[in-house]
Nucleic acid binder design. Structure first.
Lengths: 201, 201
DNA sequence: ATACAATTCAACTATTTAGTTGAACTTATT
DNA sequence: AATAAGTTCAACTAAATAGTTGAATTGTAT
């Protein structure tokens, strides 16, 4: 009985690993069972079906990064340290879960309606405080007149893209694994400057 | 006999459609056959296996956008019109092939080594002329000192991200299909300014 | 200790999907 | 017209994969 939670957790960890790496269609229940070091029938005992297990993993995955990002956007910080914090948060998350961004992007596009319903129900929204902060910067003439939505999308996009495009980057710039990691380190420093300069008057 | 090329093309079109939408693992040979309006055995007659058909589609997909982007980078244009052209090229491509960027990102991450080998063999490389152009802008003090690689990645990332993150954007910013399209139109105008301002001294 | 419920697993079935085959048909060549 | 090569399809087999079952085991409460 004390095993119950532990086993369930073990399955979820394994499923997260495999689903995030291969996507729903590419994942095999057997592979998840192997990763969790249990029998395949346990997966069904705990989660009924591949689809139900996937739903849990997908929703957990979103809960894993979305609130953290929103928290940073909402934080009581000036724009410059806030962007720095945001970039740092993204790169830290990638270090822990390298497949997470691509996984979410792929799967939300496979079932956009299901995804939208979920995000709505969870109440994930861009904090109004951040939008106000942007508007204030613009009004006080310290920032170019940019649509706050554009600004958010640009920032997130600049964080995410080099992570999901890794094989492309490694190839065209002839980097090995170490050089790529080094490139990311350099980028972590340069990116906030790039973003802030882009909206500087 | 005159049908040969037509049928093969028909299959490739259908396969491109389905593979780009669902990915390799999510695609069904039957679905491709239905889309091409032919019998399933024809797929094997023309392409032997799902894997071989996929390889062809994947490589064609890359050939479809990579050279075009590189051509723009290599074009004899000043930086500002070149970035404008690049953004335009990306959005035009997305209009024609809405699943292409996400497809390539997903699949190149599933088989990075195979992908790298392919890109190497095709000889896709960032044109040296573009790197020189950036260096010259920096030396002549009209641009901040940015690693040309960063600059390229940022530009491509800013183009691609809003396309692959569509369901997310529609949800958090409460857009319907029309509003999203409108947002992209606005963005096509604003993005080059954002990029160029980001590297302006 | 006994009974009961929860847990585990090997072996199984059901379903989905890729791939094959052979006969019928079409087209080009002589 | 006869022949051969290429093309098409319905029906099939083979393989992969999700899901089930029932017996054995473990843990817990009385």
């Amino acid at each position: 009985m004390s095993e119950e939670i532990e086993t369930e957790q073990q399955i979820l960890e394994a499923a997260k690993q495999i689903f995030q790496e291969r996507g729903f269609a590419g994942a095999r229940m057997q592979e998840i069972a192997d990763e969790a070091d249990i029998n395949k029938s346990m997966l069904h005992y705990y989660f009924r079906s591949k689809d139900k297990l996937f739903q849990k993993v997908f929703q957990d995955s979103i809960r894993q990064f979305f609130p953290e990002i929103l928290k940073v956007l909402h934080a009581d910080l000036a724009l410059t340290p806030k962007i720095e914090k945001l970039v740092e948060t993204y790169y830290e998350m990638f270090r822990k879960h390298p497949h997470l961004p691509r996984f979410v992007i792929h799967e939300m596009n496979q079932h956009p309606d299901r995804f939208k319903e979920f995000v709505k129900n969870m109440g994930f929204e861009i904090p109004e405080t951040f939008v106000k902060q942007i508007r204030q910067e613009i009004e006080s003439d310290s920032m170019l007149n940019i649509d706050p939505r554009e600004f958010i999308i640009n920032t997130i996009g600049l964080c995410v893209f080099p992570l999901i495009a890794r094989p492309m980057i490694e190839t065209v710039f002839k980097m090995n694994n170490e050089q790529y990691q080094q490139f990311l380190e350099q980028r972590k420093k340069e990116l906030p400057k790039f973003i802030l300069n882009a909206v500087k008057k």
